[in-house]
Amino acid sequence: MAKTVVPEAARQRRRRTKQGTVLSHGLIVETALRMLREHGAAGLTARRLGRALGADASSVYRYFRGMDDLTLAIADELISRAMRDWTATGDWQADLRGLGLRIHTAYLAHPQAAVLTANRVTGRAHEVAADEAILGTLRRAGFPDPAAARIYHAFIDQSLAFAALDAASLALPAPARRADEEVWRATYARLPARTHPHIAATAGLLVGRMNDSAYPVALDMLLASAAAELAAPAGEG
C-alpha cells in the first residue's frame, strides 16, 4: 500500500529535531542537495538523510512517498532556481538565451543532483511554469504551434543534455577531471600532420576550446536556426 503523504500545512513536527530545527519539505530538499554534493547519489538514502536532519528516517516519508518522489522534488527545485527572478523582455531570442543559460547554470551549481535528475520529467509546478514560459515566448514571437512545439523540444532537451554532460564532468573526482582535460594538450596537440592532418591543423584551437562547455555556442546555433525559420517567407523552411 502506498504511504500517505501528509499535506504541507499538516507536516510540521510537534518537536524540534536534534539540531533544533523544524522539518519541512524545503529543508529536506535542501539537505538532500547538500548530501548529493558531498556524497553523490549513492550516499543519498532515507536513513542517511534522516540522520543528517536529526530525525528518524521514517520522518522523510511524511513528506515524500519515497526516495524517487524526493528525486523529482529535487529536479523541480533546480528548475525553480533557474526561473527565479526571470522575466520576459519581449525579445524572444534574448529571453530564451537567458533562460537556457539560467537552466545550465542552476544545474551545474549542483552537478551530482544534475546527473541524477536531468533526464526526469516531474510534471510539478516549477517545471510546468518553465514549459509554459518557453512555449509562450515562442508563440508570442509568431511561431505556429507545430514549430513552437518542435523548437521547444529541441531547446529544453539541448539545455538538459548539456547540463547533464557538463555536470558529469564536474562530478568527477578532481584528479580524473584534470587528467581528462590534459588529454587535449598531451595527446591531440602532439598528433603529427602526416597521420592526422585535420586534427593537427586545428589542435591549437581544440586545446583552447574543448575543456569549456559548448552549450552557449550550441544554444546560439539553435536560436539562429529558429530565427531564420521565422524570417523565411511563408511556405519555406
Results as ranks from 00 to 15, higher is better:
1 M>F: 13
2 A>R: 15
4 T>P: 03
6 V>K: 02
7 P>D: 09
9 A>S: 11
11 R>I: 00
13 R>L: 13
15 R>S: 12
15 R>I: 06
16 R>H: 10
19 Q>Y: 11
20 G>L: 02
20 G>S: 08
22 V>H: 04
27 L>D: 00
28 I>H: 03
30 E>F: 06
30 E>N: 14
33 L>T: 10
35 M>C: 03
43 G>S: 07
45 T>D: 03
49 L>I: 04
51 R>Q: 14
54 G>V: 05
55 A>Q: 02
62 R>E: 09
62 R>V: 05
62 R>Q: 12
65 R>Q: 14
66 G>I: 00
68 D>N: 12
68 D>L: 04
70 L>M: 03
72 L>T: 03
72 L>V: 01
76 D>E: 08
77 E>L: 00
78 L>Y: 02
78 L>I: 02
87 T>W: 04
89 T>Y: 07
90 G>T: 06
93 Q>A: 13
93 Q>K: 10
97 R>E: 14
99 L>V: 02
101 L>Y: 08
104 H>N: 06
108 L>A: 06
110 H>Y: 12
110 H>T: 05
114 A>E: 11
114 A>I: 07
114 A>D: 10
115 V>A: 12
116 L>W: 14
116 L>I: 04
118 A>L: 01
123 G>R: 02
127 E>G: 04
127 E>I: 01
128 V>E: 15
130 A>P: 04
131 D>T: 07
134 I>T: 13
139 R>T: 15
139 R>H: 03
144 P>S: 00
145 D>T: 11
145 D>A: 10
147 A>Q: 13
150 R>E: 14
150 R>M: 14
151 I>N: 02
151 I>L: 08
153 H>L: 10
155 F>I: 02
155 F>Y: 15
157 D>Q: 13
159 S>A: 15
160 L>D: 06
160 L>V: 03
161 A>Y: 09
164 A>H: 10
164 A>W: 06
165 L>S: 12
166 D>M: 02
167 A>D: 04
168 A>K: 06
169 S>L: 14
169 S>N: 09
173 P>S: 07
177 R>A: 14
182 E>N: 13
184 W>M: 14
185 R>T: 12
186 A>P: 00
188 Y>C: 06
190 R>V: 07
193 A>R: 13
203 A>Q: 05
205 L>K: 15
206 L>K: 13
210 M>G: 06
211 N>Y: 03
221 M>L: 15
222 L>G: 09
222 L>Y: 08
228 A>R: 12
228 A>V: 02
232 A>E: 11
234 A>Q: 14
237 G>L: 10
237 G>E: 13
